[in-house]
Simulated assay, not measured.
Amino acid sequence: MKIAVFGPNRRVGVVVGDDVVDVNGAYAKYLTERTDSVRPAARAAHEVPAELNSFIEQGDDALAGANTALDFLSEDSDKTGVDGEQLVFPLNAVTLHAPIEGQSRIFAALANFADHMQAAADNTSNGSDKATLDRLVSGGPKYFIKDPRVVSADGDDLAYPRRTNLLDYEAEVAVVIGKRAKDIAANDFGSYIWGYTLVNDWSIRDNVSFGPDFQYSKNFDGAATVGPWIVVDESLDPQDIPVEARINGEVRQSGNTKSMIHSFASLGEYLSRDSTLFPGDLISGGTPKGTAVDSSTRDAEGKFADDSLFLNPGDVVEVSSTALGSITNTISGSRGGKK
């Protein structure tokens, strides 16, 4: 099931073919016409919420209610709700928002694909940089947080940040947390995964420090594209999901979550120690090789000999997975500092 957030009121919808269905409205119609519910709208708001995090928190009951609503609507020639409102919308006629609420968090794994880190090490001659890369790979999981309040969605333009000349892309797969999790064991983490989505972890590569200000290079308006929806499918193996990045149609990254150094289960165990993960939180698993930063050679001073693989205004960037769909953004504005 593909769970989307759509329209001006940011309602939960289920993508069916080329349409998106307002399942809260469809479930209210089902309750009104097929049951003896006294307050069908109130019951629908509780059982199949229109708000994403409430829908996620409702768990299997919300998914079951959504399936009931879809089955009912497929048999009903009238696709309008109890008050005559539209319930089925063509995908090409609505706005899909990033499927994350503002109060949720994006935990992004750092240095979590060995091939990405090895490629970066191979392309630098600076001993200090090599030591830093080795330190990032060694030991337990490492992560940073991206601000969910300023995420971008599939189809959005991404404004080139003025503070950089070196804007980079990172194709990633993220798991969506389905219930409160604290101090969980890695072996139990699978039951806390509600679904999966794509993330483009946009990154600034100028003068990156892996100290306290590292997050400055990872956070700016639009710095995480999330979507286009959340795939809820228990048959998916979180450690066997392919992901690719294309720049202007050229494949730059092609990887699979099976190559993650620390699995989603290990990340979940680490992040939940003494801290609660909440329904709707995302854990993004890191990126494989093929980013501009790991594909470009740096000299002994850490400067890029050729920065042509970094993004330019007008570039079209697509992150895709055969299991999850695709998100596409166009870079707008001007490359900072370049005349």
Rank of each mutant, 00 (worst) to 15 (best):
S296F: 05
G314D: 12
F310T: 00
D294Q: 03
A323I: 11
T297M: 14
S334Q: 12
G302L: 14
S308G: 05
D294R: 00
L324G: 07
K339I: 15
A305K: 13
K303R: 13
A300T: 10
N329D: 11
S295I: 14
V317Y: 01
N312A: 13
A292C: 11
S321N: 07
A323L: 15
E318M: 15
N329L: 10
D307G: 05
G337K: 05
G336C: 08
G333Y: 08
T322C: 07
K303P: 03
G314I: 11
N329C: 11
D315T: 06
A292R: 00
S334N: 07
S321K: 03
R298Q: 14
K339L: 15
V319A: 07
T297Q: 13
T328V: 15
L309H: 04
D299T: 07
G336M: 08
V317E: 02
T322Y: 04
E301C: 04
A300M: 10
D294E: 03
I331Q: 01
G333H: 07
V293Q: 00
L309N: 09
D315C: 08
G333A: 14
D294M: 09
R298E: 11
G325W: 06
T330Y: 01
S326L: 12
A305T: 15
A305W: 06
S320V: 02
V293F: 04
D307C: 09
S308I: 10
S321W: 03
D315P: 09
I327K: 00
D306L: 15
S320H: 03
V317T: 05
K339C: 11
P313T: 01
G333Q: 05
T297Y: 10
F310L: 05
G325K: 03
G337A: 09
R298A: 14
A292E: 02
N329W: 04
N329G: 08
S321R: 06
D294W: 01
L311M: 06
I327F: 08
